[in-house]
């Protein structure tokens, strides 16, 4: 290999432009959209049997070390939809949206419009709770007979997800015994709301589902 030229005058530019290198090496971040995925949804009678607890989980498979840095997306509205009339169209919604260190809740309230697009129903009962930081004791709040929590928790889901995938893919013909809980030892970001049954239909059967909605 030849020696590097030692005459400054004829040496030419190496880098050329800082920003040329920049353009090359800062790849776009992962496309969002999966960050708003709902990993799980639960609805069950609370400790107070006159109430129903709803759990909406997002951002699954958080390792303990990753949990401290995980945060709710302030552009994502989490909406619990409640159909009290049996037509699978929501009659009531409970909305949750983070702002700063708090999770704000509205409802249960009849939405101004049903379907794919929502506005935040600020006329509904407004509540809020401090988002519990990783490593702190759970902070809960009560308002109007309702209870609220938002923050990281152990992922309550259990399943041998991988073996199930192998079966679906045709790589395996049976589950293992014992199976392996894919979600063991991992955390999720949870929103938990407990609501008096009287606020969501009183008696009979309701149909419920959770949605995540992104700010346009």
């Amino acid at each position: 290999m030849k020696r590097v030229t030692t005459i400054l005058g004829i040496s030419i530019v190496l880098i050329g432009s800082f920003f040329l290198i920049a353009a090359d090496h800062i790849d776009a971040p992962a496309v969002q959209g999966t960050s708003s995925d709902i990993t799980d949804f639960y609805a069950f009678q609370g400790e107070d049997t006159n109430s129903i607890a709803f759990v909406v989980n997002t951002q699954g498979l958080l390792s303990p070390a990753a949990t401290g840095n995980a945060s709710f997306n302030e552009n994502t509205l989490i909406e619990i939809n409640i159909d009290t009339s049996g037509d699978n169209v929501e009659d009531l919604v409970i909305q949750a949206i983070p702002r700063g260190d708090k999770m704000y809740f509205f409802g249960p309230v009849a939405p101004s419009a049903t379907g794919l697009n929502s506005v935040i129903e600020t006329s509904g009962t407004a509540s809020s709770v401090d988002i519990t930081a990783y490593g702190s004791a759970a902070i809960t709040e009560t308002n109007n007979g309702m209870k609220f929590f938002a923050g990281p928790r152990d992922d309550p889901f259990f399943m041998d997800f991988a073996q199930y995938g192998e079966i679906i893919a045709g790589n395996a013909t049976s589950f293992n015994d014992p199976g392996s809980d894919t979600f063991a030892g991992t955390n999720v970001l949870s929103i938990v709301v407990e609501v008096p049954k009287s606020l969501i239909g009183g008696s009979g059967t309701i149909n419920v589902w959770a949605e995540s909605k992104g700010k346009q």
């Binding site: 498979l61 390792s63 303990p64 070390a65 990753a66 401290g68 840095n69 997800f161 991988a162 073996q163 995938g165 192998e166 293992n176 392996s180 894919t182 030892g185």
Partner: peptide
Amino acid sequence: TANEIYTFWTSKLEKSPNQYP
């Protein structure tokens, strides 16, 4: 942090190599 995350998942993978996620 990344090292802790790495250690967590590699030890899980070692214990349950079939957990491809």
